[in-house]
Simulated scan of single mutants.
Amino acid sequence: MMSPPSRPGEPPEPTLLRQRWLALRQSQPRTRIRDAADQLGVSEAQLLATGVGENAVRLELRFDVLLPRMESLGRVMSLTRNAHAVHEKRGTWRNVELHGARALVLDEDIDLRLFLSRWCFGFALRESLADGLRRSLQFFDATGTAVHKVFLEDGGGTAAFDALVEELTHAEQSAELPVEAPAPVKAPRPDGDVDVEGLRAGWCGLQDTHDFFTLLQRFDVARTQALRLAGQELTTAVAPESLTWVLERVAGSGQPIMVFVGNPGAIQIHTGPVHTVRPTGPWMNVLDSGFNLHLRADHIHTAWVVRKPTRDGVVTSLELFDAAGENIALLFGKRKPGQPELPEWRALMAELAAALPVREVMP
């Protein structure tokens, strides 16, 4: 019996939605689930939930159980993305710290900052692929947008995966998932309403890069607005091509860097060198054995060399943003708290600011 069609403006009934997804996968086998969800007019989590009872299990988000047990899964690929960039790291979850609604994973390979209040849905997947069964844990926010995914790469973690899924199986195993509409992006205040001198003074008084977000909140200023208003001694607007320029140079020199990609629920960090830098169409890619980056270079609307004073000296970053002012990625020289910035990285950022400056950035 055919499922009834959905009403206009509502998600399709799950059985019909799954049929449409399977048909789409057959006609476009290389289409990723996020893109398929966009084509079908639903969230990624809603599309994934149509597999509940087949290849998907909804999980309880009991972080005190879940996060410490991630190490038992062995070697995994951890994936964090936003609308424009995908950041993949391979390694083992170790040194997990849970602090209420926040968590840290502090391993040399898997380095994460997790904002758990944003995690609303969790699923375990067992997907049959040409090369075998792929197991993963996938987590989504209230809108059904992915915040983090973990894919098993070590067959030795299979039993631990199965035990964890059994323990955390949610009582609700419906193929229909209620999600919230995305909140509208808040428009920045007019420049004339910003206390620019106070902002600059607070910026120059920073002691830690982590205090920068608090500074923006204190002066109620959008990040790209602050970068534009701060002045040449603190920021330099550079061309969107700066990402390729930097990656090609650090790949050639072996200089270790830090690459941050995040969303409201997770930030993932690569620390170390990059080796294989390869553009493919609009994508700029890093294709190394332990680290992959896929970033839509054509979506970079503004790029900035940013200088932040700290107790360890000035810390310099390359910051990339989309047309709405949302951050795509941040690049730093390799460093740890208590250590000064590498002079090679600071010199590279100075060279970039001189080579690819943008003279005027419109609000």
Results as ranks from 00 to 15, higher is better:
Ser3Val: 14
Pro11Cys: 06
Pro29Thr: 13
Ala49Met: 00
Ala56Trp: 10
Phe63Cys: 01
Asp64Arg: 12
Arg69His: 13
Leu73Asn: 12
Arg75Leu: 14
Val76Met: 10
Thr80Ile: 12
His87Gly: 11
Glu88Cys: 13
Lys89Met: 13
Trp93Pro: 13
Glu97Thr: 15
Glu97Phe: 11
Arg102Tyr: 12
Asp111Phe: 08
Leu112Val: 12
Arg113Cys: 03
Phe115Met: 10
Trp119Val: 06
Gly122Pro: 13
Leu125Pro: 15
Arg126Tyr: 02
Gly132Gln: 08
Lys149Cys: 06
Gly157Gln: 03
Ser174Cys: 04
Val179Gln: 03
Val196Tyr: 05
Ala201Thr: 15
Cys204Pro: 11
Phe219Asn: 11
Arg223Ala: 11
Thr224Gln: 12
Ala226Ser: 09
Ala237Tyr: 13
Val238Gly: 00
Ala239Tyr: 00
Pro240Asn: 00
Glu241His: 09
Thr244Gln: 14
Val259Glu: 03
Ile267Ala: 05
Met284Trp: 15
Asn292Tyr: 06
Leu293Glu: 09
Ala297His: 13
Trp304Asp: 10
Arg307Glu: 03
Val314Gln: 07
Glu319Ser: 12
Phe321Ile: 15
Asp322Arg: 04
Glu326Tyr: 00
Asn327Met: 14
Gly338His: 01
Leu342Asp: 15
Arg346Lys: 12
Ala347Leu: 08
Leu352Gly: 08
Val358Met: 06
Arg359Asn: 09
Arg359Thr: 13
